[in-house]
Write a protein that binds this DNA or RNA. Sequence first.
DNA 1: TCTGGGGTCCTAGGACCC
DNA 2: TCTGGGGTCCTAGGACCC
Length: 419
Amino acid sequence: MFALADCNNFFASCERVFRPELNGRPVIVLSNNDGCAVARSNEAKALGIKMGDPYFKIRNIVEKNNVAVFSSNFALYGDMSRRVQAVLREAAPSVEVYSIDEAFLDLRGMDVDFDRFAKDLSARCRKLTAIPVSVGIAPTKTLAKIASKLCKQYPKLQGGCYMHRQEDVEKVLRTFPVGDVWGIGRRSAKKLTDSGIRTAWEYTQLPEIAVRKQFALPGLRTWQELRGIPCIEFEDIVEAKQSICVSRSFASEITELAPLSEQIANFAASAAVKLRHQKSLCLEMAVFAVTNRFKENAPQTHGNSLVTFPDGTSDHRAIVSAAVGATRELYRNGFGYKKAGVVFLKLMAERDSVGSIFADEAALEKERRLSSTLDTLNATFGQGAVLFGVQGDGHVQSAREHQSPHYTTLWEDIPKVKV
DNA sequence: TCTGGGGTCCTAGGACCC
DNA sequence: TCTGGGGTCCTAGGACCC
């Protein structure tokens, strides 16, 4: 058996932990630049606010219904996520953190009352972190996902649902929309409903050949998983990322080279920190800057510039300065850039590096020490404590009007209690 | 006026090899 | 008219996830 622990409306729930008066009131959390709604409390969902709705389009609903609005606060969400993970790790020997708000638990070999286990785990998360968590348990990951969704639909399940008997699974799948199944995206869902397949159950009744032909291997795996045959591996070891990207939309368009370079230098700097954190080297870096695609009448451009590091590097100076050079390459006068980013495309593990026979080892060692000193200083005194001049003041230009405090990660933001 | 960010896997087709 | 057979590697684009 596998369990899926899924935090309900995670970002909205995090905001409520330190603002309990918001319970019962609709809450939404916005994406970068206060652009779109990316998390909604149940009350906000009931008002018809959809995932990804642009804020300016739902402003009316927000104002009329006294919706509490937050800019995203990833320092808070990341920290709350770690707290929930800690509770999960006490419950099972093996945990796969799937995303910031979801984790699978490997329950194979465990001999317990799984329904009790699920409900107890949910209650324990709630008690220790104040985050509501839905725990679904089933013979495959895909079915566990469905079981956890049931918890959100039926409060009487008390946050835990064990779904395993063939007849129970069938009963659930017979009404479960095929498009809500993990692994069936918008495209496949449309194809399916167009041909009359509406529920997960109907999908499982398609012949294997047809599934393979129309939806290839991923579709076949989902088909098997729904039929109770596990095909998706449990992966508790965190692999190094194969690509690293830091990109942002700007609050207002950037037309000049200097401020654009400054933003991109900052993206490169934070991507380089991530790169060194996972002990990788970058062999190829792409830098891009694009205009506002929603402005149909404005001139559009998609600037792109590729940089290669033949021996691989994680050197802060090399990366930031190459990113600035690439920006000069791609920049064109007369355009309003709305979004830009830095992507490391080809990575290799530091330990697999053979270097170059021409490399100056002493110089490389100096580079490594500089980068690592920089990382230590910024980790200790806050990101941006030490910067290169090209990074300006180290701030990325973005609107966040509704930011909540860093309750759990900044001394000055820790809530004070009167005795 | 205002429209997010960061990933993975799979497949088809081209280029190339003997 | 006829036009081999078998293989690898790489890339772009699609689909999916949160």
